[in-house]
Design a protein around this nucleic acid. Structure first.
Length: 115
DNA sequence: ACCTTGACAGAAT
DNA sequence: AATTCTGCCAAGG
């Protein structure tokens, strides 16, 4: 795990996109997989982030800005405590409730915003 | 080598 | 409208 050389390179592609999510904006697993044209689907995007969590080289990745299609912080349990929510609130992201962000307001679509 | 389990999402029931 | 099923594929047991 955390072995970037082997496995499919799309893990790298995922990291690249996540790294470009602007401050105060969020995107979804599905949007990323769609933008990258991954047949593997949104599930593998989450899997890639799971690897990045362990891989120190990607410790700075703003993976807290990735939520599921309903705006729910499905990855919150992979952060310590409620770090994911705290970070987003710090960026001024509006919450519907403790684990759901206002996607309408903050959604960032890589397919539309990226060249 | 087989089965289960996911940081998901969309279709089908 | 709500729940279940299905595609997807990498790890871990």
């Amino acid at each position: 795990m955390g072995n970037r050389e082997k496995s499919e390179d799309y893990f790298e592609w995922v990291y690249a996109v996540v790294a470009k999510i602007p401050f105060g904006r969020v995107t979804t697993y599905g949007a990323i997989s769609q933008y990258l044209g991954l047949r593997s689907g949104a599930r593998m995007v989450g899997w890639a982030l799971n690897s990045s969590r362990i891989d120190k080289e990607y410790a700075g990745l703003p993976c807290h800005r990735v939520v599921n299609r309903l705006g729910q912080l499905s990855g919150r349990y992979h952060f310590t405590g409620n770090v994911m929510e705290e970070r987003l609130r710090q960026e001024g992201v509006v919450f519907i409730n403790d684990f759901t962000v206002d996607l309408e307001k903050h959604f960032w679509d890589p397919a539309r915003e990226l060249p």
